[in-house]
Design a protein around this nucleic acid. Sequence first.
DNA 1: TTAGGTGCAAAACCTTTGCCATCCC
DNA 2: GGGATGGCAAAGGTTTTGCACCTAA
Lengths: 126, 126
Amino acid sequence: MVVRRSKQNKAILRVLRETTSHPTAVYIYEQVRKEMPDISLGTVYRNLGLLKQEGKILELGLAGTPNRFDGNTQSHCHFRCEQCGRVYDVDEPVDRGRDERVAQKTGFKIYYCGVQFRGLCKGCQS
Amino acid sequence: MVVRRSKQNKAILRVLRETTSHPTAVYIYEQVRKEMPDISLGTVYRNLGLLKQEGKILELGLAGTPNRFDGNTQSHCHFRCEQCGRVYDVDEPVDRGRDERVAQKTGFKIYYCGVQFRGLCKGCQS
DNA sequence: TTAGGTGCAAAACCTTTGCCATCCC
DNA sequence: GGGATGGCAAAGGTTTTGCACCTAA
């Protein structure tokens, strides 16, 4: 199966790369629609799925809110606000050596390691 | 609003405490149904929601698979298999001091911090 | 030319909710 | 008795899919 880079695919990846906001599929859909009014949400999901399989993006599963996508596939830290659902990047180092150690210990193959903080973001602490 | 501990609520919490498998709502439903055949899936979800609010359990959002629940609310490490969706506990220390540091730096309020590994579990490495 | 991609709409799936009966305190 | 909870079923929201039509290689 040859990967054909459609313009929809490119646009979706571009939106994801141009933002640091970990958007939902619907947000991406709205952005892409500005320049490509006929694109459908199904196509957005389809391409997000492909990009994920290719390892170009990351899908973040969040209990209670629609999934979000991240153009940064490096292991890194996220903070998720339990109130508003937003996901912020946190600038903290991830211990790369640990991946090795855990892989050894468990026999699992590790592709990605992220740290996830949960709590309330500034705006949501009333 | 007084919290009344119904027997359904107790049974759901018990199932969650007795397993380390981070079950889905449906799995919990099936387990509880063995002793309480009339319980409905809606009730399971309702009680999981309540237990989550009380901070007695954790909900794990996983892209692509139904959410899973964890009776262990301590900050800890998970490994998630991208193939089969299973979630395993990983016995690695979580750096508690970092929560403080990140809270200071960002102004966010942090309730929980978990490390999430992704990859392939032993059984799924064909 | 042609496998793979798109748009559209319907389906599937997970989760939440409304309503009324039931159960505890 | 009366508020909280449960069972049932319908609704809601997100994501996937089938199909006929395009399109990039």
